[in-house]
Simulated assay, not measured.
Amino acid sequence: MANFNWELVNLFSWKDLLDILAVSAFIYGVLHFLRITRGLQIFKGIVVLAGFWLFAELLNLRALSWVFEKLWTVGLFSLVVIFQPEIRKTLSRLGQKTGISFIKPVEERVVDRVVRACSFLSDRQIGALIVIERGQSVEGVVEGCVLIDSLVSVELLITIFNPISPLHDGAVVVRGDRVVYASCILPLSKSAELPKKYGTRHRAALGIVEETDAVCVVVSEETGEISLAVGGKLHRNLDPEILRELLFKELKIEKA
Score class of each variant (00 low, 15 high):
81 V>L: 12
252 K>V: 12
58 L>G: 02
164 I>S: 08
1 M>H: 11
44 K>Y: 15
147 L>C: 06
183 S>D: 04
31 L>R: 05
69 E>A: 09
158 I>M: 00
153 S>R: 06
143 E>I: 01
72 W>G: 06
239 D>K: 07
59 L>W: 15
174 V>C: 03
86 E>V: 09
141 V>E: 06
10 N>S: 13
229 A>E: 02
193 E>G: 00
183 S>I: 00
111 V>I: 13
120 F>C: 00
247 L>I: 04
12 F>D: 05
208 I>G: 12
200 T>P: 00
153 S>L: 04
22 A>Y: 10
152 V>L: 00
228 L>S: 01
69 E>Y: 13
165 S>N: 15
149 D>H: 07
106 V>R: 01
199 G>S: 09
37 T>S: 14
250 E>W: 15
238 L>S: 06
103 I>T: 04
121 L>C: 07
200 T>R: 11
118 C>Q: 05
103 I>V: 12
240 P>N: 02
209 V>T: 15
203 R>H: 01
211 E>A: 15
185 I>N: 06
192 A>G: 00
95 G>N: 11
40 L>Q: 13
140 G>K: 04
141 V>Q: 08
71 L>Q: 08
233 K>M: 09
69 E>H: 08
89 K>I: 14
182 A>P: 07
161 F>S: 01
192 A>H: 05
210 E>L: 07
3 N>V: 10
110 V>T: 14
162 N>V: 02
151 L>C: 02
95 G>K: 09
74 V>F: 14
26 F>Y: 15
190 K>E: 13
135 G>F: 05
136 Q>N: 06
154 V>D: 08
10 N>I: 12
15 K>V: 07
137 S>M: 00
119 S>H: 13
107 E>P: 00
153 S>M: 03
194 L>W: 11
27 I>H: 09
29 G>D: 14
33 F>L: 10
215 V>T: 07
9 V>Y: 11
132 I>R: 06
5 N>M: 04
144 G>R: 12
175 R>S: 12
127 G>C: 06
228 L>D: 03
2 A>Y: 14
170 G>D: 01
97 K>C: 03
228 L>K: 09
111 V>R: 04
53 W>E: 13
150 S>C: 04
46 I>S: 03
31 L>T: 07
256 A>T: 13
211 E>P: 05
150 S>K: 11
